[in-house]
């Protein structure tokens, strides 16, 4: 008697014992759960989806890392797809020496950190002003603030470019620091909104009590609001730093002829300068690996930064309450 016949035999008898029924319902409970969302099947599907999406997300990263280690024969050979046959550091050495990496890193750090710092200071001031004081035209000014986020840089860059060239600011870091100080830097509106919603969450009682004790508005700001806003300050600085580090459109214009270039552009420049091989030749294929090594070296500082500070990044939106509006 095979299994199916057995099952038929028992079910036809309609003598399903208490034990099998219990086992069945238990299996049902484990697989589907009480309300579908707590069953085993649901869990498995959830994790499979998450893992596959994470794979899709990380695929270019993995591609970059593995291919940057490959020698030219690895890239050509069909048998090597993911894991390079030897760990080949040569690609990295070429880029490292070509762009003078430590020097480039220092420049890139300055180019990102100084504007980021000025943007943080100014947006804290402005965000505090918007959050804590009432004045005429406040709504209008807030609307204009949001407008500045939508206005694309290609509209404002030409007059700014002319302004900079008249005052001889082109090719210097000041071309990025000045707008940042005045709250008009890269994504400046977002930082102001972050500080705005953060300062809104601080109870007004604290400032009132400070004012009763005789503090001036500026003292209230520096002694009470700023120490409370340290999470927001960290978040704004980190975001601003990363965005300035990655900014290439305007820096390609303002810093074009100076020695001080952001890291992505500098690596790009080096690679383009050495890239003159016909397509398909082994040298061209090797060039691919060098390009990827250059990319890795470009993003490496950010990856390290992200590794240590990822908590601030991923909790930024919860903490600042920017979704509250």
């Amino acid at each position: 008697m095979n299994v199916w016949a057995k099952i038929k035999h028992y079910s036809s008898k309609e003598k399903q014992s208490e034990v099998t029924r219990k086992a069945k319902s238990k299996l049902h409970f484990i697989l589907l759960g009480r309300k579908l969302t707590d069953g085993l099947i649901y869990k498995v599907v959830l994790y499979v989806l998450l893992v596959s999406l994470a794979y899709i997300y990380l695929y270019p990263m993995l591609y970059m890392i593995t291919n940057s280690f490959m020698t030219s024969s690895d890239i050509i050979s069909a048998s090597v797809r993911w894991i390079p046959s030897t760990l080949n550091w040569e690609n990295y050495q070429i880029v490292w020496q070509g762009v003078n990496y430590p020097r480039a890193l220092w420049d890139a750090f300055l180019l990102a950190a100084l504007p980021a710092l000025s943007a943080t200071v100014s947006s804290a001031l402005v965000g505090y002003g918007f959050a804590k004081y009432n004045f005429p035209f406040k709504k209008t000014l807030m609307a204009l603030l949001i407008m500045t986020f939508i206005i694309p840089p290609q509209i404002t860059m030409m007059p700014t470019f002319r302004m900079y060239s008249n005052y001889e600011l082109l090719g210097t870091i000041r071309a990025f620091v000045y707008p940042a100080i005045l709250g008009q830097g890269l994504n400046g509106a977002i930082y102001i909104l972050i500080f705005y919603s953060f300062f809104k969450m601080i109870p007004k009682v604290l400032e009132e009590s400070a004012q009763l004790d005789g503090a001036t508005p500026l003292q209230t700001f520096t002694k009470i609001a700023i120490p409370l806003a340290i999470p927001a300050i960290i978040i704004v600085f980190l975001f601003s730093f990363v965005w300035y580090y990655n900014e290439t459109y305007l820096s390609g214009l303002y810093l074009r002829d100076s020695g001080m270039l952001p890291m992505p552009l500098r690596v790009q420049e080096f690679i383009n300068a050495t890239d003159n091989f016909p397509e398909g030749s082994p040298a061209f294929e090797l060039q691919q690996a060098i390009r990827l090594a250059g990319n890795i070296l470009t993003i490496l500082p950010l990856l390290i930064l992200y590794f240590f500070t990822q908590k601030h990044f991923v909790e930024s939106i919860d903490k600042t309450g920017i979704t509250g509006e």
Binding site: L125, G129, N134, T156, P217
Partner: peptide, 27 residues
């Protein structure tokens, strides 16, 4: 209060005039 408020956002207003309003109308 409104005076102090304007003091705080003065930085942004100046920046807005120089780096946003003027360029937009100039282009």
């Amino acid at each position: 209060e409104s005076m102090i408020g304007y003091m705080f956002i003065m930085v942004w207003i100046i920046g807005f005039l120089i780096f946003a309003l003027y360029p937009v109308f100039y282009t």
